[in-house]
């Protein structure tokens, strides 16, 4: 049975103005992503992959067109509404992890929970569970500088899913990692889709990384070319 569309882009255009020149990133783009999909977005540099992720994540706005999430238009939200919406629905994973260097792994993971009404003890329970899922229970009190790149990215994944968002948006999540560590990270993302029902969208240059996804999108010259996994 085909699942309901979770994310829908309809006629989305994005232009930047730089030095009085308009730069078209993409024009009239349509896209549907359903719940529980693992989508890899590939394409050459400058094709707009990260911009697409930013638009879906509500940290950038389209020049025109509509973006709906669960049937609700998000491109018309105010900044404050978007902040709340992101906290509830989106988990971000970045190429360079973007952990807070002054916080321990546990404290980093706890960050999104500070935006909820959970008590301190409940937050601690959730953090413990999230760290155990990414197999980093024993690194809870470590600071980012005391961990490897792979461990830091696993902390970032735990931070991304701890508040139980529907979607994980990953911008080059394995771009800074060696092959073996990259595979570990991608397997965790697969686990998120398979066991936790998350929808995962990753932007990557790496065809090997894209193989872990159930659906591959190639973005080039403002258009999508799609290939589904066998």
């Amino acid at each position: 049975m085909t699942k309901e569309p979770l994310i829908k882009l309809e006629g989305v255009s994005k232009h930047y103005v730089k030095n009085k020149m308009s730069i078209d990133i993409f024009d009239e783009l349509d896209l549907v992503i359903r719940e529980n999909e693992f989508v890899a977005v590939m394409g050459p540099s400058g094709s707009g992959k990260t911009t697409l992720l930013n638009l879906i994540g509500g940290i950038d706005r389209p020049t025109s067109g509509a973006i709906t999430f669960g049937g609700e238009r998000i491109d018309t939200f105010s900044e404050s509404q978007l902040s709340k919406w992101r906290a509830a629905n989106i988990g971000f994973i970045f190429q360079f992890y973007n952990l807070m260097p002054m916080l321990t792994a546990a404290q980093n993971v706890e960050l999104p929970l500070l935006l909820t009404k959970l008590s301190k003890s409940k937050r601690a329970e959730h953090v413990k569970t999230a760290l155990s899922i990414v197999e980093l229970e024993d690194r809870a009190k470590f600071y980012p500088r005391e961990m490897s790149g792979g461990q830091q990215q696993r902390v970032a994944i735990a931070r991304a899913f701890i508040s139980d968002p529907k979607v994980l948006l990953c911008d080059e999540p394995t771009g800074d990692l060696d092959r073996k560590t990259a595979e570990e990270i991608l397997k965790i993302l697969q686990l998120m889709v398979r066991d936790f029902g998350k929808t995962v969208i990753i932007v990557t240059h790496d065809p090997e990384a894209a193989k872990f996804a159930s659906r591959k999108l190639y973005l080039d010259k403002g258009k999508f070319f799609e290939r589904r996994a066998a």
């Binding site: 992101r86 973007n98 960050l111 935006l115």
Partner: peptide, 9 residues
């Protein structure tokens, strides 16, 4: 990053 996670401006 904090703002992306949902912390307000």
């Amino acid at each position: 990053t904090l703002r992306a996670l949902g912390f307000g401006a």
